[in-house]
Design a protein around this nucleic acid. Structure first.
Lengths: 204, 204, 204, 204
DNA sequence: ATCTAATCGAGACGGTACGTCGGGTCTTTTG
DNA sequence: CAAAAGACCCGACGTACCGTCTCGATTAGAT
């Protein structure tokens, strides 16, 4: 009844190699940085043929995303205790810690950069990280906006950008150290711009 | 009495080659994108020996910064008509236009990425673009804060980040298109978070 | 029981590229001379990556030796009709013709020069040309010396040097043109210094 | 009366630089070998501009010949005590010692090689070393041939070649070590091929 | 005493080739 | 038939020298 796939023959994909590749990639990025990563090095470190990598991933960026994506998705959204302000500030604190981690921030920054000229990376990142995260945030914001906790004359995507953009800005430009960015101060400033106007909350 | 320069010996740097290199770099970036740029191509296009490039720039990223920096600095700060709100919104509009320009935004994004793993690029970018811009903004913000136009319990760097970060965020992550970002809406949201509290304006 | 080779893995050396490289090298040497030869030109002419050359030869000299060695070995030794004098003079004539050939003499001279500072060339030349030739000559000389055709109080290597050295001398120093060297006159002078003394032939 | 040169104006050639260049060249050859010699290194070592070298010599080989030629000419000919046999053997011994000197033999060999593709070197070498030496030898051989000490049916150049060629042969090919070549054994073998025939000395 | 011309050091210039790295593709043998 | 091994063509890297070309600073004969 359901669409049966055409029943594969021959040797199947080696889970062992798959894991070895991701592991080697993750290790190499942490050791030499993303920009020194090469397919050749991954293959050598994983004890794998280059072809095996090319067979399953379109580019080195795609491998790297796979190697990092698990850690990313853990932090993509936040819990809902019903208290928007508390939830947001709490999440912001944990997000700040993650980006400031020297074993994480620089690498996710490099991956984001890679996405700029590697469509494969852009797509994987979008589908696995950015997309779900943005969707979850939109949904939450829509709820709080409907409840009147957040003013309703602000675009949801603009609100979300305001909430997180400063972290990324510092991660990329480094004009000011990321560690100097107080998540609570940021959170409160943002909340100020989101709160319903004194005159009128939802009538507009 | 005055600072005597160390008296140059030998042939002097060729202004012609210098210009040809910057020009070739700029052209190549616009044609093939920054990630396809190579020192070899720059040299060939400029009719110059590779050594001449390596003699004056530490890396291809540094050449690219030099080739783009003139256009960047034009937009790094904003004029002061005395009306903070108007000046900021006006500048934001022009900044948005610049970043959204397909002949500019992607390239400055790529350069910012390059700075992440090329210290030479980071330094040039900092000294020629980020540093002066940040300094000018800080000075302006300090003035408006002293005048009570902006609340004084907010960190100046945090304020500046809020003012610009969303543009960069969309430029890099592309979760939402940059063109959807209404600079006026952003500006008004930010201004809301900066305005003095109703209770207390400047007494603190 | 037999020597089992260690079982080769991966793609095997391309016979096509191998031949193309030797062919291109040979052509280039004849066109531009050995001193204008470059790995880059060989690769381009042969339609081959530089790496493929570096993978199999240690230096451009080694490639050149391989490209020339076949022609050389053809002339390295001489036939044995039983008549030492006739065989020697005959071979000398053909050797003279070979060295005087403008498509050959200068190139083998250049290779011999290269061997002076490139140990890899020296070794290949020794193993493929000089060594076998010298061994064959020693064996022949030992036989004729035992037979009393050649005096036995002369060192075999010295005798062989006398027999050929003048050709090389003129090839290198060019004080006198190689073409002026009459192989028969040389051969007869040498034979004179080799013939058994009148007093005593083989008793010593 | 004589052709007066047009009276030079301006600064004259610096004897100091001239010497420094030859000295640096000689030192560099002995330290790194002729094949690693470069104009740039000579200039740096001598504390001299490259142009100064190019102004006075056509190529690096020409500089090297100048740097070595003094030592060479010392040994180019031999004294005439009236005893041909003794003079020849004596000179052969000293010549053998010179060529076997590791601080000399390899470098003169390299220069001879250079002459093969650098006409400037060939010419200087010919005019300063090979030519005079060959002329002196020819003159001496003509005398001894006229005196009946040497058979008169042998070409003088062939005779001279026989007398020296084996040294050069071993210097270049290294099939057998140069040090194994006994100059006296060589000399006696050559003399045997030069002595007048038993039947008739000068009548032919 | 000046002028004039050639040389000097220094070093930037357009080039060619070097030997290496890595990219992505293509055999070949083994499991 | 996937996987390891690894050879293949190719493009770019950063370096070494080449031979040429300014530079400002000597230096010495001619004026």
């Amino acid at each position: 009844m359901t669409e049966t796939s055409p029943a594969p023959r021959g040797r199947r994909r080696s889970a062992h190699s798959h894991q070895a590749i991701l592991r080697a990639t993750s290790d190499l990025i942490r050791e030499d940085g993303y920009s020194n990563l090469s397919i050749e090095a991954i293959a050598a470190r994983a004890g794998v043929g280059k072809q095996t990598i090319y067979r399953w991933w379109p580019s080195k960026g795609a491998v790297a995303v796979d190697a990092f994506v698990a850690e990313l998705t853990l932090h993509a959204t936040w819990t809902d205790t019903g208290d928007f302000r508390a939830d947001y500030l709490d999440h912001l604190r944990r997000f700040a810690t993650l980006l400031a981690d020297p074993a994480f921030g620089p690498h996710i920054a490099a991956l984001t950069c890679e996405a700029l000229h590697d469509p494969a990376v852009a797509e994987v990142l979008q589908q696995r990280v950015t997309g779900p995260s943005r969707a979850a945030h939109r949904e939450r914001m829509a709820r709080v906006q409907a409840a009147g906790t957040v003013r309703n004359d602000i675009d949801i995507d603009l609100a979300i950008d305001l909430m997180y953009a400063p972290f990324w800005f510092r991660l990329f430009t480094r004009a000011v150290p990321l560690s100097n960015l107080d998540p609570v101060a940021l959170g409160e400033a943002v909340l100020r711009s989101l709160e319903p106007s004194a005159v009128d909350g939802s009538s507009e």
